[in-house]
């Protein structure tokens, strides 16, 4: 019997050990999970959901010729300071003046990455560095961009810039790197915090309120309502890319 007890003792001890270690493990991990939850605030799925499609409607009637507030807002937000070299400095957003010579009408509008549903930049990128998030924001993964610039050849909107020289004083939320390609991110870092892109804020602050940003898949969003109630157009709609940026009164 004694020998039995002796034989059984280790079994009990092993069982107890497993129970205790499981409990200890659970106790160790759980607060970590909670902390992770608190720090992250949102899960990955919530951050970029296929149930959302971020887009913009730009009212060219409100967009003032000569006003550059959105571009300046973008440059400030992402630290696009430039080196005084127009041809090689990055421009994520630019104001374009369009004149229909036959009727003599001129309008001014901002152009940036149009966040296409079928982005040619992502199609041609050899490494997949150019990609589309679930919520249709088109981004460049700076870690795997090899700087081949094929995306710049493919983009019909001239929305991309190559970093031609060393950069300093970068924004931590908008990392950039010499030798890689970049473009408008729809201020993804702000969108993920339920904020508006910097250009939209700047335009509103200037008083023009020409840009509406929102979720195209939410039928009640300001953007969806505006798109439904007014006629808008896509730039180079003939290419069938279904851009997320639309223009009104144009």
């Amino acid at each position: 019997m004694a020998s039995n007890e002796k034989e059984g003792a280790p079994v009990n001890t092993r069982r107890e050990f497993l129970v205790k270690i499981s409990a200890a493990g659970a106790l160790t991990i759980t607060p970590g999970l909670f902390l992770y939850k608190v720090a992250e605030a949102k899960s990955d799925n919530e951050l970029a959901s296929a149930n959302k499609r971020w887009g913009m409607l730009i009212d060219t009637a409100r967009c003032a010729d000569g006003c550059n507030a959105c571009v300046e807002g973008c440059n400030k937000e992402h630290g696009l300071t430039g080196h005084g070299r127009e041809a090689t400095d990055a421009q994520w957003m630019r104001k374009v003046t369009v004149t229909d010579k036959s009727i003599g009408k001129t309008i001014s509008l901002p152009i940036m990455c149009q966040h296409c549903e079928n982005p040619p930049c992502a199609d041609v990128c050899p490494t997949g560095a150019s990609f589309k998030r679930k919520d249709n924001i088109v981004l460049v993964d700076k870690h795997i961009c090899i700087g081949c610039r094929y995306c710049m050849m493919a983009c019909p909107y001239k929305a991309r810039s190559f970093i031609h020289e060393e950069l300093s004083n970068q924004k931590s939320y908008s990392p950039r790197g010499k030798g890689t390609v970049e473009s408008c991110t729809f201020c993804v870092h702000r969108v993920d915090q339920d904020k508006q892109p910097a250009c939209v804020e700047a335009c509103n602050e200037s008083g023009h309120k020409a840009i509406v940003f929102g979720d195209m898949k939410d039928p009640n969003s300001e953007l969806s309502v505006a798109l439904k109630t007014s006629s808008s157009r896509q730039i180079r709609a003939d290419l069938g890319l279904n851009p997320g940026v639309r223009y009104k009164n144009f």
Binding site: Q91, V96, T99, I111
Partner: peptide, 11 residues
């Protein structure tokens, strides 16, 4: 970008 139109910009 705008076939048939005249365009200009800083880019």
């Amino acid at each position: 970008l705008f076939p048939g139109m005249e365009v200009s910009s800083s880019f």
